[in-house]
Lab assay of single mutants.
Amino acid sequence: MISLIAALAVDRVIGMENAMPWNLPADLAWFKRNTLNKPVIMGRHTWESIGRPLPGRKNIILSSQPGTDDRVTWVKSVDEAIAACGDVPEIMVIGGGRVYEQFLPKAQKLYLTHIDAEVEGDTHFPDYEPDDWESVFSEFHDADAQNSHSYCFEILERR
């Protein structure tokens, strides 16, 4: 099963200049909980913004210009990325925008964090048809001392 995991502000903004323009430790914990011990696929820009392999996960970098870091697996196509994951129950696609666009048609599940923030962004989550998805989990949280904005975790499964 292919799943996408993303944090989205208003207007589906997911990033600005290779960074997330908010401070939500709870979302980072949600991300870790849902990706640990699963292969993660990301684009080169996302890889560069993280700066290191995510521990406890097979890191697969999709790029037309593969790098030389041998701590991760470099691939040039969506099919190659899927094959590099091996026989696993769930593959997690973690961004960025172009990689989400490439995998959305193949995805069966979306793990979304909806952030109540209007922020400037240069990267967006692809538009998706809500009628194609069923919400199977939703959990709202107010902003607090650690988390700069209110947010809602949601899991959607393709109908």
Results as ranks from 00 to 15, higher is better:
Ala6Met: 12
Ala9Met: 02
Val10Met: 00
Val10Thr: 02
Val10Arg: 00
Asp11Phe: 00
Arg12Met: 14
Arg12Pro: 00
Val13Asp: 01
Ile14Val: 14
Ile14Gly: 00
Asn18Ala: 05
Asn18Thr: 08
Ala19Leu: 03
Pro21Leu: 02
Ala26Met: 02
Ala29Ile: 01
Lys32Arg: 03
Lys32Ala: 03
Lys38Phe: 13
Pro39Met: 12
Pro39Asn: 13
Pro39Cys: 06
Ile41Phe: 07
Met42Ser: 10
Arg44Pro: 00
His45Asp: 03
Thr46Gly: 02
Ser49Cys: 04
Ser49Trp: 01
Ile50Leu: 15
Ile50Thr: 04
Gly51Asn: 08
Pro55Val: 08
Ile60Ser: 03
Leu62Phe: 11
Ser64Arg: 11
Gln65Cys: 11
Thr68Cys: 13
Asp70Asn: 05
Arg71Tyr: 07
Val72Gln: 11
Val75Ser: 07
Lys76Phe: 12
Ser77Thr: 14
Val78Arg: 13
Ile82Lys: 09
Ile82Asp: 04
Ala84Met: 05
Cys85Met: 15
Cys85Gly: 08
Cys85Ala: 10
Cys85Thr: 08
Gly86Tyr: 06
Val88Asn: 05
Pro89Ala: 10
Ile91Ala: 15
Ile94Leu: 14
Gly97Leu: 01
Gly97Gln: 08
Val99Met: 12
Val99His: 01
Tyr100Asn: 02
Phe103Arg: 02
Pro105Asp: 05
Pro105Ala: 10
Lys106Gly: 11
Lys106Pro: 06
Ala107Leu: 03
Lys109Ile: 08
Leu112Gln: 04
Leu112Lys: 03
His114Met: 15
Ile115Ala: 11
Asp116Asn: 15
Val119Thr: 15
Glu120Lys: 15
Glu120Ser: 06
Asp122Asn: 00
Asp122Leu: 00
Thr123Ala: 15
Phe125Val: 01
Phe125Trp: 12
Pro126Leu: 04
Asp127His: 14
Asp127Leu: 13
Asp127Pro: 12
Tyr128Met: 09
Asp131Arg: 03
Trp133Phe: 12
Glu134Ala: 08
Ser135Ile: 14
Glu139Ala: 06
His141Phe: 06
His141Ser: 07
Ala143Ile: 06
Ala143Pro: 04
Asp144Phe: 04
Asn147Ser: 09
Asn147Asp: 01
Ser148Asp: 02
Tyr151Glu: 03
Phe153Asn: 05
Phe153Glu: 03
Glu157Gly: 11
